Simulated scan of single mutants.
Amino acid sequence: MTFVAAPAKALFAFSRGTQATLSVAQPLIAALIADDRPAPQRLAAAALAAFAGFFAVFALNDLLDIDMDRRRFAHPRPYEGTDLDGVGGRHPLARGRLSRRAALAWIGGLGLVAVVITALLSWVCVALFAVAALLQVLYCRLATVTPYKFLVSGVMVAVGGSVGWFTVSTVVDPLRLGLFLVWMAAWEIGGRNIPNDLADLDEDRHLGVRTLPVVHGPRAGAATACGFLLVAGAASCALAWVALGSFGPPGLVGTVLVTAATLVRPGLALLRRPEPPLALAVFNRASFQPVGVLAVLAVGLATTG
């Protein structure tokens, strides 16, 4: 059992499995606001493709950053803290817990599953998945080039999340889809990207990684993150209002409460105290916002049913 468990744990950590699993909520929300009564088999196929796709893309990030991550461990964070990205161990490929051959096979196999399923659902989904993967590559290549690469990350997550919409519908509602895209991009930037950069401030300084907190300081990073978190919160609540027929009053109230607890309150706390340990806590809490919104949307659909 230990012989099997060790590689499985390394692969889970390689794909940042906890974060990848939470991310599946994004395309599922897009699917349910596009069609609140989708065919169950299409929704199940979309969920399976999302699992495979997110596990592949998160792993691709670690593969592309392997050399930098190897150097990262020479200057680890000067503090301890729970990190959703580190469940199972941070960067197992860079630590030698996983071979490059196994890493390539894992990414290739998962990517193939995601592409085949999305192709069966819609070729638009295949194109969007490919764009998201290319944006991930671009983001990694910009690590030491510009602190504004967080914009690429925001677009990448918005594009990836929108795949869910086109798994169940070919009709575009500009307002609903537009609010969803703004929400996803702002949530990624303010809730995950910049807080994660602030949490890694000391490591990134040693590595020459250009992030907003490194180049412009922790306070500017925290202020920018807070601004994007407020935009994300407003967009998600506006989406729940616009799609009230799907969310229902319970879903709308639930979205407001979830957003206040996972985005607004943590963002304001970070603005007051722009410190790496708190930034990591903001990252962890914000990661649960789409899952919370998906849960209250499901309740709304059940009660408006």
Rank of each mutant, 00 (worst) to 15 (best):
A6Y: 10
R16D: 08
Q19N: 14
A20R: 00
T21M: 09
L22Y: 01
A30F: 01
R37S: 14
R42H: 12
L43P: 05
A45R: 01
L48C: 13
A49I: 02
F51G: 03
F55S: 05
F55I: 09
V57E: 08
V57M: 11
F58I: 08
L60G: 14
D65Y: 01
I66N: 10
M68R: 12
R70M: 10
R71T: 11
F73D: 13
Y79G: 07
L84I: 14
L84T: 07
H91Q: 15
L93K: 06
A94S: 09
L98P: 06
R101I: 15
A102L: 08
A102T: 13
A105T: 13
A105H: 00
L110Y: 06
G111F: 04
V113D: 04
I117S: 12
I117F: 09
C125D: 08
C125F: 02
F129K: 06
A130L: 10
A133N: 06
L134W: 00
L135Q: 05
Y139R: 03
Y139L: 06
T144A: 13
T144M: 07
V145F: 09
Y148T: 13
F150V: 15
F150Q: 03
L151Q: 05
V152Q: 03
V152L: 00
V152A: 07
V152I: 12
S153V: 09
A158N: 04
V159G: 09
G160S: 11
G161R: 01
G161K: 01
G161Q: 00
V163D: 07
T167D: 07
T167V: 13
T170I: 11
V172I: 13
L179A: 11
V182K: 05
W183S: 11
A186Q: 00
W187Y: 13
W187H: 15
E188L: 05
I189G: 07
P195F: 04
A199T: 07
A199H: 02
D202K: 10
R205M: 10
T211L: 04
T211K: 01
H216I: 09
H216D: 10
G217V: 05
A222W: 00
T224R: 06
C226F: 08
G227S: 05
F228Y: 08
V231N: 03
A232L: 02
L239A: 09
A240D: 00
G245A: 05
G248K: 00
V253P: 00
G254S: 05
P266V: 15
G267V: 13
A269D: 11
R273D: 15
L280M: 13
V282C: 13
Q289G: 10
Q289H: 15
P290D: 08
V296K: 01
G300A: 04
G305M: 03
